[in-house]
């Protein structure tokens, strides 16, 4: 069987002398691995960099097999960010997270679209805010979306400043007052839009990181990818 799709390179592992096993997040086939003959060779090494958007042709005798990919560059995102430490860390983190949390061979078109949007946003200065929104979208796609529209206690839609770690729902500042230290800070840019400050971005990442770990990683005994920790260290300065 065979199919053609487009995908984002998430991870590449050398296989043999010239080959590579590439994991792609494809539009219609989800996170899907495949052997790329000559994937570690001169012609394909530049294409198979995490974050690159590729056209991919997969073929295998059975759908469950590793199969093999033929890939062609559609958009070279990686080359554009190699000199930018922060953007590079964000793309590495996003690819590592997708590789860690998305189930294999299960279509996640929303996750694909969100990753494409994130890679496009790397050209803008607002990439840290977009990155936090991307992690929220990833949680939503996995079925653990946070409800940041209204206060879980009062129903208020304004002055939302916290999120309950138990329910993932927003809590207004007034309602949060008695047990503020047990709630997660909700940065304003996640509710009101716009760009977050350095502290807001870190708060946003702490929020998404908490739920990613609790709902997605910890149940499978998977550690938070080191690439994400390095992104946070970099943003912390």
């Amino acid at each position: 069987m065979e199919w053609a799709d487009e995908g984002i390179v998430l991870a590449v592992r050398r296989h043999g002398e010239n080959g590579a096993v590439a994991s792609l997040l494809t539009r219609a086939h989800g996170r899907h691995p495949g052997l790329v003959h000559g994937g570690s060779g001169k012609a394909n090494r530049g294409v198979l960099q995490p974050g690159n958007h590729v056209k991919a042709w997969w073929r295998g005798r059975l759908a469950e097999q590793l199969g093999s990919y033929r890939v062609e560059m559609a958009q070279a995102h990686a080359a554009g960010i190699l000199d930018h430490a922060g953007r590079l860390a964000a793309v590495a983190s996003a690819c590592a997270l997708c590789e860690a949390v998305l189930p294999e061979r299960e279509p996640h078109p929303a996750a694909f679209a969100a990753l494409v949007a994130l890679l496009e946003a790397m050209k803008s200065e607002a990439w840290p805010s977009v990155y936090v929104h991307w992690e929220l979208a990833l949680l939503r796609d996995l079925g653990y979306g946070l409800d940041l529209t209204a206060c879980a206690a009062t129903g208020a839609t304004i002055d939302l400043g916290y999120v309950s770690p138990k329910t993932g729902r927003a809590v207004s500042r007034a309602a949060a007052e008695p047990y503020r230290d047990r709630l997660l800070p909700l940065p304003a840019f996640l509710v009101e839009g716009g760009e977050g400050s350095g502290g807001d971005i870190l708060d946003g990442l702490a929020l998404t990181g908490y739920f990613l770990d609790r709902h997605v990683l910890a149940p499978h005994r998977v550690a938070m990818p080191a690439a994400r920790s390095r992104l946070i260290d970099r943003l912390r300065g």
Binding site: G46, V47, N52, M73, A76, A79, G80, D83
Partner: peptide, 22 residues
């Protein structure tokens, strides 16, 4: 990062050309 010696632009990938331009 950029155009290698003997490299013709026509044969280079987009990423290398962008890096060379920058």
């Amino acid at each position: 990062h950029g155009v290698p010696v003997g490299g013709e632009l026509d044969y280079l990938d987009d990423g290398t050309i962008s890096a060379a331009l920058r």
